[in-house]
Design a protein around this nucleic acid. Structure first.
Lengths: 193, 193
DNA sequence: TTCTTTATTGACTCGTCAATCAAGAAAAAC
DNA sequence: GTTTTTCTTGATTGACGAGTCAATAAAGAA
């Protein structure tokens, strides 16, 4: 029963299934068949739409980064001054949805993949640059010349706490991490580090 | 020509070869044969001494953490007051040897492995706990009740900057990261975050 | 010397998996 | 109503890899 216009539907299903499968196994060492089965189709169809395993992974990575980016942008429109924008950026990284097992697993594996896949590396670099420039842009009106260094530290603490807390799936891990990064933000805004 | 007492030699060679192979591929998706070849023996021998791939990985992880722990301890004996001990702990994480491709690759992959292997998780937890308690122990005489929070942030920033800088193999990444964590340390010692 | 322990490997088994392909089936175009 | 395009899969191929095993060889023990 081939309906037309299946391509975007199939692709989306495969991307979601890929992330779920990564979450279930913790690894990128998963098979196309498993992904396809989870998405309700044959492995041949997955190859048909994506061409190969690598492309599927990259699409999953792109999707994860896109969702994250959208979340940040969504949080930003609610804020109307630099300080609350900074707070929004920080909070966006630690929402419960970002702490779901599959999402944590995806991020960790993307870091691993970035070591060997130039395309994955590029995507990760885009994420890191965007986070840094977002921070700097909103820090500059508040602390001018110290903005760059502060942004580096805040970005580093976001990634680091995500890494440390992502593994232990406790439900207040996000709240706790947010608290610490906000504490750093206040210190940066106050002090002369 | 079987000399006796080969076991420790073979095991050490396999552990080193494993880390190098992880560094060369960026993944844990490497074969026992490749590891064994790199270590100058047959894959059967690797199985003989380690029993299986998982055990080899765990041994490599244990070794990496042991070396790191020794580095920290070595740096600590040179320091005779809490503040310089804190500085030593921070510096130890960002030595050039810790920024070698293989070591970064190993750490990233251990984080991934920790999601699915309870034993790997346990090892990583040991590392994280030791770092935190080291920090708290030396922060307490300086800032007493704020020690715990500060330790969490410093540990997070160490891991986060390692993650962010580990990928771009520039040679002053370590110096730069150290600078930022030390800046945070000074802010924590001064301020009331 | 004979026996046992340690070291070592090549060959093999059994399984898995990415990728391909030919073929079928339904919609749309003509 | 025939042809073309889109969608779909089962079956197959070709490769690779973890783990086992029987066999060899040297060193030490008896």
């Amino acid at each position: 029963m081939p309906k037309l216009g299946m391509e975007p539907i199939r692709r989306a299903a495969l991307v979601k299934a890929t992330i779920d499968e990564i979450g279930a196994s913790g690894t990128l060492d998963i098979t196309v068949s498993k992904i396809a089965k989870r998405a309700g189709m044959s492995s041949a169809l997955a190859h048909h739409y994506f061409g190969g395993k690598d492309q599927i992974f990259l699409a999953a990575m792109r999707h994860t980064l896109t969702v994250y980016g959208a979340e940040v942008r969504g949080a930003l429109i609610m804020a109307d001054n630099p300080e609350s924008r900074l707070e929004a950026i920080i909070r966006a990284g630690f929402t419960t949805s970002n702490f779901r097992r599959e999402i944590v697993a995806a991020w960790l594996n993307f870091y691993v993949l970035a070591q060997s896949s130039p395309q994955a590396r590029r995507l990760l670099t885009v994420y890191q640059s965007r986070l840094r420039s977002n921070l700097i842009y909103n820090l500059r009106p508040l602390i001018a010349d110290r903005a760059a260094g502060a942004a580096e530290r805040i970005a580093g603490l976001i990634d680091g706490l995500y890494l440390r807390r992502g593994l232990d799936q406790s439900d207040d891990a996000g709240r706790d991490a947010t608290k610490h990064v906000l504490a750093l933000l206040r210190a940066e805004l106050r002090g002369q580090s």
